[in-house]
């Protein structure tokens, strides 16, 4: 009995050891395989969310007067910038950057859209927004809506928009606003964030990697 028990114990131990090694190796291999896409995104300049965030339903207007809802963010990637037409420095600079991004990504024109959402709906009528965005790129989409609807969207995206009154001239108030570009994925989920300093080349290379891993 004893002569038989020892080899059997040894066999069990060996089996256990081999199984453990195999399990660890298999786990290692599987996790490496599964995380391959994510691991490639670790050195992005963009902020890439581990879990893209779904958006609550919203209803806005595009610059042609058509409804702009969650549906308009599905089936393609959307680059979104929040700003206003009375913004002469940051907003034109950012829209120029987005135009450069669009030019560099023109081969994927059907899969990318560029949207400028007003944080100043009081002054930014659809017409005015249309003139503003078309100056940078005729494919860009200007979006406005009621103050409530825009507030509801900015809050869920963590976008800040704060009106600053001008004591000398009530018509010329300023609006502090988030300076980052938001990336919405083809499911219509908030997927990544490009923060200043914004450079078209960096945005394009980060976006290409994000879209490949998607």
């Amino acid at each position: 009995m004893t002569t038989q028990r020892t080899p059997s114990k040894l066999r069990l131990a060996l089996l256990f050891a081999v199984t453990t090694v195999l399990a660890v190796a298999a786990g290692y291999w599987t996790s490496g395989y599964l995380l391959k896409g994510q691991a490639g995104l670790q050195d992005l300049q963009a902020t890439h969310f581990n879990a893209a965030r779904a958006l609550q339903p919203f209803e806005l207007l595009d610059h042609t007067g058509k409804a702009f809802t969650n549906n308009e963010l599905r089936g393609h990637w959307s680059f979104i910038f929040f700003g206003y037409t009375h913004c002469p420095d940051v907003c034109p600079t950012t829209l120029s950057v987005l135009n450069s991004v669009a030019t560099r990504l023109r081969e994927q024109a059907g899969q990318t859209r560029y949207i400028f959402i007003s944080v100043d709906p009081e002054r930014d009528t659809p017409d005015k927004l249309g003139q503003f965005v078309s100056y940078f790129n005729t494919d860009f989409i200007g979006v406005t809506g009621t103050t409530e609807a825009i507030g509801q969207l900015t809050r869920q995206l963590g976008v800040i928009a704060a009106r600053v009154e001008d004591g000398a001239d009530a018509e010329n108030y300023l609006v502090d606003h988030t300076a980052s570009i938001l990336l919405i994925d083809p499911d219509g989920h908030f997927h990544a964030l490009f923060s200043p300093p914004l450079k078209a080349a960096n945005i394009v290379s980060d976006f290409t990697r994000i879209a490949e891993a998607y």
């Binding site: 913004c87 034109p92 003139q131 078309s134 100056y135 940078f136 010329n172």
Partner: peptide
Amino acid sequence: IREAPPGAGVLA
């Protein structure tokens, strides 16, 4: 001066 879109109320 940065050329602005038509109708812009403020330039830089």
